[in-house]
C-alpha cells in the first residue's frame, strides 16, 4: 500500500512539473505572437501609462477576451496568453485533487477544494471588491 502510494506520488510530481513547464511555455508563445502583432500594428504610437485609466471591459474578463481573440485583436491575444499563465497554477490544483482522490486522502481532497474555491471566487466573481 505504502509502496503503491509512493509510486503515484512520484508520477503525480512528474505530471505537475510537466504541467507547470508546458503551461508557462504555451503562455509565453501566445504572448509573444500577440506581442509581435501588437508591435507591427501600434509600434509607432506613444505608450501612455503615466495616468491610470484602467483597461476597457473587453480586456478584463474571460468571455470578452475570448471574443477579442476570435476577432484577432493583438491586445486580446496577449491577454489570452496571460490568462493561460494564470490558469497554469490553477490547473495544478485540479491535478492535486486527482492525486488525493487516487490516494483516498479525504482530508486533503477537502483542503484542496477549499483552495480551489477561493481561487475560483477571485477569477470569476465580477462583484469582488
Amino acid at each position: 500500500m505504502s509502496a503503491n502510494s509512493k509510486i503515484t506520488d512520484k508520477n503525480l510530481e512528474v505530471m505537475m512539473g510537466n504541467l507547470l513547464r508546458y503551461g508557462v511555455l504555451l503562455s509565453g508563445i501566445i504572448v509573444l505572437i500577440g506581442g509581435i502583432i501588437y508591435l507591427i500594428k501600434y509600434g509607432n504610437n506613444s505608450p501612455n501609462y503615466t495616468q491610470f485609466v484602467g483597461e476597457p471591459s473587453s480586456l478584463t474578463n474571460v468571455k470578452s477576451i475570448l471574443i477579442g481573440v476570435s476577432g484577432f485583436h493583438s491586445r486580446s491575444i496577449i491577454q489570452f496568453g496571460l490568462l493561460v499563465l494564470i490558469a497554469t497554477p490553477v490547473a495544478r490544483i485540479f491535478l492535486s485533487i486527482i492525486g488525493f482522490i487516487l490516494e483516498k486522502d479525504y482530508l486533503y481532497i477537502f483542503i484542496t477544494l477549499i483552495v480551489l474555491s477561493v481561487v475560483m471566487f477571485s477569477l470569476f466573481s465580477g462583484s469582488a471588491g
Binding site: S76, I78, I86, T88, V119, S122
Partner: peptide
C-alpha cells in the same frame, strides 16, 4: 493567481505593458 483575478477585473493588467 488568486490576486491576479481581482487585478484583471479591476483593469490593472495591461497587455502592452505585461507583454
Amino acid at each position: 493567481a488568486a490576486s491576479a483575478g481581482i487585478y484583471l477585473e479591476r483593469g490593472y493588467i495591461d497587455p502592452g505593458l505585461a507583454m
